[in-house]
């Protein structure tokens, strides 16, 4: 019996979201008296033994040229083989770009019930129930899973990475791998240095900035904070900023540690995409902006004065000036 965690990687490195999933899976194993094991498809530059620091005992590594192409149909069959070998009763994915394609498929393949977008440890005292986000962050639901095998996908930034002592045993796993039907012909980096969905800090701006030419100051604030940039829907619709920066109900939903909103009034649809942020700071010249009701900290005033001051105050704190 085991809790099996899928380890996702990009550019030779394990994704931060997978470190969260590993920590989460190891906690479930501890809670249910089983062992945590991981599965990785392909090769990375990171030391896989070090995944033991999250509490994982074994890492099954499947190396095959066909796996260089991400194809959920092919990956699913490989993960299912490993799950069988490992005797997995709970299988964990991150609810990220790969996990969204894999978790449902693996669930069907293993006749397992799926809870997608979970954000807390399961309650295993009587059956198996786990909390997930519903209504775009406006509520939570407890999902009871009735099947013998359970598949969970963990929301990004919903579980703190736990790092302790330990070394995992890396086991090469010889799987049957089909040839992929998908073929990636191009891959580009769209946003800046920090991925929006994985970012700890997000700086976002809206119509209050008056035009795309005024984004320099929010970019500088984001750089200072090591933050990803985001924007509101009107800004993306007016093509001031690219669509992939639009956060909100119909854009990207994020859950950073800190969300700084500049010149965004906070329509309910925008809140639905950001309300899982742990700390929200709102800068707006309109004291009646609805966003202040959802914020932890607020500054009522002119963004063009406040943002540069905020940037230099943070630089001072970080000892950069």
């Amino acid at each position: 019996m085991s809790v099996l965690i899928f380890v996702d990687h990009i550019d030779g490195h394990i994704k931060k979201a997978s470190h969260e999933a590993l920590s989460y899976g190891a906690k479930i194993a501890e809670q249910t008296g089983t062992t945590a094991e991981a599965v990785i498809l392909g090769t990375v530059n990171d030391d896989l033994e070090k995944l033991g620091e999250h509490g994982v005992k074994k890492v099954y590594q499947v190396q095959n040229e066909q796996l260089q192409q991400f194809d959920s149909q092919v990956y699913t069959k490989v993960i299912a083989q490993v799950a069988q070998q490992s005797g997995a009763k709970v299988i964990i994915f991150s609810n990220n770009s790969s996990g969204k394609a894999l978790a449902p498929r693996v669930a069907v393949r293993l006749k397992a019930g799926l809870a997608a977008g979970v954000n807390a440890l399961p309650d295993t005292s009587n059956g198996f129930t786990v909390r997930k986000t519903v209504f775009s962050g406006k509520a939570f639901a407890q999902v009871a899973i009735d099947t013998e095998i359970k598949v969970l996908s963990l929301n990004v930034n919903a579980f703190t990475i736990i790092t302790g002592e330990g070394k995992a045993e890396v086991i090469p796993f010889d799987a049957i791998v089909e040839s992929p039907k998908l073929k990636t012909i191009d891959s580009t980096k769209t946003s800046g240095k920090v991925s929006l969905t994985e970012a700890d800090v997000v700086v976002s701006a809206g119509r209050g900035l008056k035009g795309p030419e005024n984004w320099g100051m929010v970019e500088e604030l984001a750089d200072t904070l090591g933050a990803a940039l985001a924007c509101s829907r009107p800004v993306a619709d007016a093509h001031w900023r690219p669509h992939n920066e639009h956060v909100g109900q119909t854009g990207i939903a994020i859950a950073p540690n800190l969300y700084v909103a500049v010149g965004i009034s906070g329509a309910i649809q925008h809140l639905a995409g950001v309300n899982r942020s742990k700390v929200i700071v709102v800068i707006n010249k309109d004291p009646e902006a609805p966003f202040f009701k959802a914020a932890d900290y607020g500054v009522v005033g002119d963004a063009f004065e406040i943002v540069p001051k905020l940037t230099s105050a943070i630089k001072k704190l970080k000892g950069q000036s």
């Binding site: 669930a107 006749k111 962050g137 509520a139 939570f140 407890q142 009735d146 009701k293 500054v299 105050a313």
Partner: peptide
């Protein structure tokens, strides 16, 4: 295979702490 057994609303926000624009520090 699964069932929504219970729903909860998130705890209400504590209320915003306003800071003067002259005191960004």
């Amino acid at each position: 295979l699964t069932k929504f057994s219970e729903f909860q609303l998130p705890p209400a926000k504590q209320g915003v702490k306003l800071v003067s624009p002259d005191n960004v520090d």
